[in-house]
Design a protein around this nucleic acid. Structure first.
Length: 671
DNA sequence: CAGTGAGCGAGCTTCCGCTTGACTT
């Protein structure tokens, strides 16, 4: 018995790699991380160089026991964990916990193909200890962040809450968006549409009256302000103008063609997959992730947790071959496309998320969601190797002279003709372009149009969905492919909710309170740039330019010009924040009660086994509680003022002998 | 059940990232 033990992370890869390597190797997996820091505040010894002790997890102990047995008969140990920071740490910990007496090699490959694996096996290296230090730094920063900040939330808002390097900036984005919605002033305005009969019919919108631009949504700002020089029509003006325009002659003022080009998409990575499945299939990130896992386990797709759009050369060739066979050579570029990650912090340990067999358009033996997700992956992958879609977008403006009003009105319409559909043959964009535009020539007169006044209102910025929040996080480099779905779950557990059948993320009142504490006490730490700053320093650790202790000290006690040390913000385990003095929000002075109306988080406490206590509005001594799932963008000052008055009057509970029975509030309410 | 919101104290909570399968409904 003389074999090499090869250790990878995913058990799903084991059989494939075993087959490639042959009988001189035994391939086994760690099933991800098998050791971690203890889940308690003292796990990092801040006083002694931020020393930490990794301990086997419950499942990890079994994994290591199994691996130890397999190692007993091996002549060498080959660490083939993922070629990224966490993979290096897993490899390092494998050596630490297995204590091998045989030689140890490190190999790195980022595709499970014979070429990639044989190439890697031919060039073994050693574990990169700087990469391991960077991984440990990341782990310790996250631990300190979570376990020192969460208790501040227990003290100031309510027990059991949590803060973290990923979840807190994510929550901040959601709350910030809701505050924008609260501050948004809806502007109402009117427009006029002109329909010209024909095939196809053309709908043009009113653009200007006697040279003055007519207001559209883009001319209003979030406070209801209108761009100078722009005219907003009210209902009466719009109706009057429609009357004047009726039957007026229409002529073509200008025809402006513009080149249309949509680039072929990149193949999916985890984040774009989760976004698109949310948008097109209305699937939550958890459902998508589980569909992906089942497709991966059935061998239909490559590794589902990736941040790289790169495809192995063989996969590129296979996708091109399928595209040529189905759509012809004219739709496939002469030179193959080789997508590269746009982001600098991408770890690129895996390929893009793609079919393992390009000729399989659909798969069977998996769930409905998985089937639909697979088809999206297949289409997107083939599309990524096809040519761009090109055509012409034409904008036509029409002059209409309003009888009796002495006004020249200009209407515009635009339409796109796609000459070369390219990738669109297999993968249609989610939002369709305008319909094609019939041919018009300048000066041409048209049959009279039909005019209709249309009421419009500006819309506040949309709430995040799981898909758009994941995109926002990914754009800021926050979070990793393996954690997007679980981050969404933990936000839902404590801080956000959605209405039935809707995917918009609505922050709870508690979320506002938590974000306020974080903003006041730890603004730098919930800034979307924090993770990027951390990543830059981790890169320095990898390069050997920055030490583990120096980095942790910069974070905890020393600061470094960018970071204020956490130790300065938390003195004796507490910040200076006093929730009694600082309400979550203020709605201004109540017009009749005369006191300032404020929102307070309402500290929860246990009473007879039940958790009681909810957020409430306060105005002087008067208070009224509100539900934690109140939609804050609906709680305008007017609504808040009214709520306080409502509860001044005792509720009528019933009637007895003609005398109404009122709630106790009757006896306690003054006046 | 609905409204409340003072103060005390015990005992508890919490991170991110890498992987599945063992659970329940």
């Amino acid at each position: 018995m003389n074999y090499s033990l090869v250790i990878v992370e995913s058990p799903t890869k084991v059989a494939t790699i075993q087959k490639i390597l042959g009988p001189n190797f035994v391939v086994a997996s760690t099933r991800g991380h098998f050791a971690d820091l203890p889940e308690k505040k003292g796990a990092v010894d801040i006083e002694h160089g931020f020393a930490v002790q990794y301990r086997l997890t419950e499942k990890g102990a079994k994994t290591i026991a199994d691996l130890r047995q397999q190692l007993a008969g091996a002549s060498e140990l080959i660490i083939a964990t993922d070629a990224d920071r966490e993979g290096e740490m897993i490899g390092h910990l494998a050596v630490e916990f297995l204590q091998p007496t045989v030689p140890v090699k490190r190999v790195r490959f980022n595709a499970v193909t014979a070429d990639a694996i044989n190439e890697a096996m031919a060039h073994p290296t050693v574990i990169d200890e700087n990469l391991v230090l960077a991984a440990r730094s990341r782990r310790v920063i996250d631990h300190i962040y979570g376990f020192h900040l969460s208790p501040e939330l227990w003290r100031t808002v309510r027990p059991g809450l949590s803060a973290g390097r990923v979840q807190s900036p994510a929550l901040h984005m959601v709350v910030k968006r809701e505050k924008e919605r609260m501050a948004f002033v809806v502007s109402e305005y009117h427009g006029i549409d002109m329909v010209l009969a024909g095939d196809p019919a053309v709908t043009a919108a009113l653009r200007s009256i006697d040279g003055a631009e007519v207001a559209a949504s883009r001319h209003f700002d979030s406070t209801g302000g209108l761009k100078p020089g722009v005219v907003a029509l009210d209902a009466q003006q719009a109706d009057d103008l429609v009357m004047c325009l009726d039957g007026a002659p229409v002529s073509v003022l200008s025809v402006e063609p513009k080149a249309y080009r949509r680039r072929a998409p990149f193949p999916y990575i985890t984040s774009s997959m989760l976004q698109d499945a949310a948008g097109r299939l209305r699937l939550g990130s958890k459902a998508t992730q589980s569909a992906l896992q089942s497709l991966f386990e059935a061998g239909h797709i490559t590794y589902p947790r990736t941040d790289s759009p790169h495809m192995a050369p063989q996969a590129v060739a296979a996708a091109r071959a399928v595209a040529i066979e189905m759509f012809g050579e004219q739709n496939v570029p002469a030179n193959a496309r080789h997508p590269k990650a746009k982001k600098s912090n991408a770890q690129e340990a895996h390929e893009a998320l793609r079919p393992t067999n390009m000729s399989k358009r659909t798969v069977s033996g998996v769930g409905t969601n998985a089937k639909r997700v697979y088809e999206m992956i297949w289409r997107r992958t083939i599309a990524s190797q096809m040519i761009d879609a090109t055509g012409t977008t034409t904008t036509v403006s029409f002059a209409v002279h309003a009888e009796g009003a002495g006004e020249q009105c200009v209407f515009t319409a635009s339409g796109t003709v796609i000459d070369v559909p390219g990738f669109r043959l297999v993968w249609a964009p989610q939002t369709e372009e305008e319909p094609p535009m019939p041919v018009f020539t300048v000066g041409q007169s048209c049959p009279a149009g039909t005019f209709t006044a249309i009421a419009h209102a500006t819309k506040p910025p949309a709430r995040y969905t799981e898909g758009t929040l994941i995109k926002a996080l990914e754009d800021d480099g926050i979070g990793r492919p393996s954690t997007y779905a679980s981050t969404m779950q933990s936000l839902r557990l404590r801080y956000v909710w959605s209405k039935k059948g809707d995917s918009a993320l609505i922050p709870t009142v508690s979320a506002f309170a938590v974000d306020q504490v974080m903003q006041v006490c730890f603004a730098e730490l919930i800034d979307h740039r924090f993770t990027n700053q951390m990543e830059d320093r981790l890169d320095e650790v990898v390069a050997g330019d920055l030490g583990y202790e120096a980095l942790l000290a910069a974070f905890w006690s020393a600061g470094d010009g960018t970071w204020t040390p956490l130790e300065k913000l938390i003195v004796n385990g507490k910040t200076l924040f006093d929730p009694k003095r600082t309400p979550v929000l203020s709605f201004g002075v109540h017009p009749t009660l005369g006191d300032e109306v404020v929102l307070r988080a309402g500290r929860a406490y246990k009473s007879r086994g039940r958790t009681v206590g909810r957020p409430y509005l306060a105005c002087g001594k008067k208070t009224v509680s509100i539900a934690d799932d109140t939609e804050m963008d609906q709680l305008t000052p007017e609504v808040a003022f009214a709520r306080l008055l409502e509860s001044r009057e005792p509720r009528v509970l019933g009637e007895h002998g003609g005398i109404p029975w009122r709630s106790c509030a009757a006896s306690t309410a003054r006046t």
